[in-house]
């Protein structure tokens, strides 16, 4: 009888660095989801009127929320970097005979992302 080696269903991702990184990538979704819910809350607050909105802003400043926001922001940046890094794999671009190098595709994404973010920050009145 052929021997089937057991596979850990709960700890496999600790066995190999690449697996661990992958699991971390997957778990960014927790914070992406939380931040989406936060946005939903904010939109709801705008819909409910100025008092509700002020309460929303006040909640943001609570210590617990501050910590969560910091973590979320960091994770969201990580998500963006990791996501753009692999776009050349999912969407390779062929120009003429040659493929555009992956680094160029990922790089273009990073440039657009940063420019877009700067424009938003400017329009938002941060600068």
């Amino acid at each position: 009888m052929a021997y089937v080696r057991p596979v850990s269903k709960t700890c496999w991702y600790l066995k190999d660095r690449n697996y661990t990184i992958h699991m971390l990538n997957e778990l960014t979704s927790v914070f992406v989801g939380l931040y989406a819910l936060l946005l939903l809350w904010g939109i709801g607050a705008v819909a409910s009127g100025p008092e509700a909105y002020q309460y929303f802003l006040k909640c943001l400043a609570s210590p617990g929320m501050l910590v969560l926001l910091w973590v979320t922001t960091i994770v969201i940046f990580y998500h963006a970097i990791a996501w753009f890094k692999v776009t050349p794999k999912a969407m390779p671009i062929q120009k003429g005979e040659e493929f555009v190098p992956g680094g160029v595709i990922a790089g273009a994404h990073y440039v657009v992302w940063i420019l877009f973010s700067l424009v938003v920050l400017f329009l938002a009145g941060v600068f």
């Binding site: 190999d16 690449n18 697996y19 992958h22 997957e26 692999v86």
Partner: peptide
């Protein structure tokens, strides 16, 4: 496939 990329590595 959950895109671990380990196959390509």
């Amino acid at each position: 496939c959950s895109f671990t990329d380990t196959c390509s590595i």
